[in-house]
Design a protein around this nucleic acid. Structure first.
Lengths: 70, 70
DNA sequence: AATAAATGTCAAATATATTTGACATTGTGT
DNA sequence: ACACAATGTCAAATATATTTGACATTTATT
């Protein structure tokens, strides 16, 4: 997976830290960091939570045109 | 979670069976069924695969305005 | 330069998504 | 009514997302 820049940007727009976003969404700071680093696949439910907090859509934050192979 | 009608509709539009969609996406038939029944949260990567096969966006197939508690 | 906050990263443990196999039910066609 | 495909559902096993704790690095502030 590629690094998730859209989340980083949306977070900056809200002036939120990774820690703050993680708490708002109810996950650990490390998990939030890993998601932004693109290190693994979050659950759709978690993605929706992040979208709600950041005021963005799934397509805006989590779409990828090409998926990296295994 | 609520039953995922949009997937059912999009699958009908493509005239695909749950089994066929599951195979196209590389998961088991039971998992595909469970997703349509809204019984658990798939991974975002899997959601994207389903979107690509069905020619729909994440927002079209996987957005939910209100998340069910617990 | 020094201090603190924010971020990046690792390993071990835990929670949960997904698989497999099996069987019940429903829908469709003959 | 009969057969067959498609769907729904359960339990046990496996793969993987997520947590926790700890530490290194970067970035901001004084």
């Amino acid at each position: 997976m590629a690094r998730n820049i859209p989340i980083k940007v949306a977070r900056a727009e809200k002036d939120m830290t990774q820690k703050a976003l993680a708490e708002a969404v109810g996950i650990s700071r490390q998990t939030m960091n890993a998601i932004e680093q693109g290190e693994y696949n979050p659950t759709i439910k978690l993605c929706r939570s992040i979208c709600r907090v950041l005021g963005k859509s799934l397509d805006e934050l989590f779409w990828e045109d090409e998926e990296q192979e295994g």
